[in-house]
Design a protein around this nucleic acid. Structure first.
Lengths: 138, 138
DNA sequence: CACACCGGTATACTTCGGTAAACCGCTATC
DNA sequence: GATAGCGGTTTACCGAAGTATACCGGTGTG
């Protein structure tokens, strides 16, 4: 349940409650952030390796997204300058793994939504739950 | 924990696992979807009423977002054609309320992320968790 | 020598999300 | 008669997000 869902909200209160949600969405939003994170769940990856794994991402996007993820502490960039062709590896940080419950939550809902779209008969039981519209404070 | 996080992934498997996540993100992404849903948690609202409450949204965006939310069964649009100036009310569907855990999950992580940004000292303990990069399959 | 892999960057382009402002018919109010 | 509210639509525009393609210096492979 959402906190205070039964108490009156001011727009200000609503926005304050929304801010962390928007923070999270800004970090995770876009087409590629989550696929990259998931790609790193099974261990460190190198740039091209990751690009092959994420399937469809361009080098430019991968580079940009990795920078942002690193800035936010979700992944770690490790450079081996000694090796012959300088090797770069990206690792999911422990902090990045704190996202698992969030991803899991999104995934569960998304799966159930697919089922819901396929079988819309369960769409009933959604009307008449609130006071009749006439009772609205105009 | 993410399912199969220890078993090898093919890119195809990864994409299949990501699809529901992207579905959810497509529905919830953007600047306004969540604020609108939250605005409807405390009861039905009329168009202008909602526009005032969401704070900053233009009529066009509100109209567009409401359409999408309705198509996805998250909200219900109710028209009273009989009333003098045709009254329209939007109600959060029962299905829309199934999003609460997801929102809550995002909110919790977002809050903790704010704290994490403020006090980055906890950033340690993130390196050296995987095999040394040399162990990578090139 | 030519070629491919590495880790990206540069440039140019298109598409999308969102903004700003005007406008519509209708009604109620002063 | 003017003004304001309702529930939007229309048009025009902007910047961010994302795509496509070429290119860079380095190395190792045939």
């Amino acid at each position: 349940m959402l906190p205070n869902s039964s108490t009156p909200h001011t727009p200000q209160e609503c926005n304050a409650a929304m801010r962390p949600v928007r923070d999270a969405l800004d970090l995770l939003g876009g087409k590629w952030k989550l696929p990259i994170i998931v790609g790193l769940t099974s261990g460190p990856r190198r740039f091209k390796q990751l690009q092959r794994e994420v399937a469809g991402i361009t080098a430019k996007m991968l580079s940009k997204e990795l920078k942002e993820l690193e800035i936010n502490g979700l992944i770690i960039r490790h450079v081996q300058a000694d090796a012959a062709p300088v090797a770069v590896t990206y690792t999911l940080a422990a902090y990045g793994r704190t996202l698992y419950p969030v991803i899991e939550s999104l995934r569960t809902w998304g799966q159930q939504h697919r089922r819901h779209i396929m079988h819309p008969e369960t769409l009933e039981a959604a009307a008449g739950e609130w006071a009749a519209p006439e009772a609205l404070s105009a």
